[in-house]
Design a protein around this nucleic acid. Sequence first.
RNA 1: GGCGGCGUAGCUCAGUGGUAGAGCAGGGGAAUCAUAAUCCCUUGGUCGGCGGUUCAAAUCCGUCCGCCGCUACCA
Length: 510
Amino acid sequence: MTRRFTITTPIFYVNGAPHIGHAYTSIACDVIARFHRLMGNDVLFVSGTDEHGQKVEQSALAQGVPPQEFADRVSAQFRQMQREMNITADDFVRTTEKRHKKSARALWEKVAENGHIYLDAYEGWYSTRDEAFIGEDEITVHPDGSRTAPSGAPVERVREPSYFFRLTDFQDRLLKFYEENPDFIGPAGPKREIESFVKQGLRDLSISRTSFRWGIEVPGDPDHVMYVWFDALANYLTAAGYPDLNSEKWAYWPADVHVVGKEIIRFHCIYWPAFLMAANLPLPKRVFAHGWWTVEGEKMSKSLGNVLDPKALSDEFGLDQLRFFLMREVPFGGDSNFSRRSMITRMNVELANDLGNLAQRTLSQVARNFDGILPERGALTQEDQAILAQAELLPSIVSDYIERLAISDALEDIWKLIRAANAYIDRQAPWVLKKTDKARMADVLRVLVDVIRTVATLLQPYMPDTMDKMLDQLGVQADERTIDALKTPTPGGRQLPKPQGLFPRFVEEG
RNA sequence: GGCGGCGUAGCUCAGUGGUAGAGCAGGGGAAUCAUAAUCCCUUGGUCGGCGGUUCAAAUCCGUCCGCCGCUACCA
């Protein structure tokens, strides 16, 4: 039976251009999605843009264009970025699409019908100059009794009519859900934060606004638009065909994992499951929060001018090299730093020296000594068996890591095999066997081809284009590149193409 | 303030009770098939400080110091 696997990227807010962080989260999801396809699973991989809200309305206004036009433009940039990063999303949901508005309204109606929404008023300190509500603890109270925002702007008490979601009613159910599903939130740090946050006590959530217009109208009350997060989170349901529960797409709900940045984990781990509970819909199996990228040790920010453009990096270092670096450098769920030095080191040491050179030294000996004809498997020595056994074990090890979203740990284990293969070739020294025992030389090279095939197969999700080329050079046909196919060695006698280096060393100019 | 995390070799980090680990960087050697790539050996750490529990602590407890995260409607 084919297993269905549904994965989502965060919904990108169209208030700014995509940068390396957006590329990173997209690539991480892409690697996981591709890996599941490689395992033969039926994958739905969804991405999209979150396009409503006051900020978007204001940014559009500032540029003198209608909000829709502004959203169209930025959303297109995100899709462009994903094309450039070779992201294989099956669907891309924009929250301004008709199907999404339908889905979000249906969710609202369902939640309301079940009695979890009521009309009241949102009251708080509002700064007209900042055009925002200011939290109680951010307010400075002056000796004369006046109050100001952190910006120094005066604030006033205002009441705005608003629909509220009875989040309070879900506190216990959420805690029970976390307890019964210990893997729901990952990794452990954010999980503890969310749980203690919920334990501190929840308040009902204001889920509509009347102060601006750029949003989805609340069903039955056109004066209100939905709070952006109610709208945005519903995009995951939109991709599954909601509210049409008879749609073929609906079989892909619930999602297996929502990958999100750590800054939006609360919305995904508290509000989202509560909304779904309120609508009697199945909950996602997992929310995984990843960390942030710093650049040369500094926080990425517009004011520092160090915001990294993924396209520029892939142009300079190569797309697959960039994908590899981003996946390799990130500790499981933690923050990471992008530096030119570590990018170049990993490219040269791990890609060029360890992997690229291993393939090249193996294949060039096949080409030179056996006219590029892939040898049959020969009698296996103990050392042959040892390394082949290590290779045969690798797919399940890597699958386990991917299942746990430990994308970089999977690479670490793949590299253990690559290093073992370099040690093997040195010990066997086929260039010496060439003079003494050419049949044994063929056996050794054949073992290496099989080991490299395993490596290349498992690396396809990370570096799809380059691994395609490597598998071409290894004589592996298109239908022999799945994980399942690794069980069957490729037949000997195939003519291999002339080997070419796939990972050139990067030499810094100047 | 409250809750939580982190502090281990020059660098990035793994390691939750039993003689300190990996990769990179540094040093020595071997080999020469290969993208001068590879392989082997090796230098290097009072595991943030102090105190406690234990036959035994990086690992448990207390305390102090230093960083960091969360603390609701801001994507």
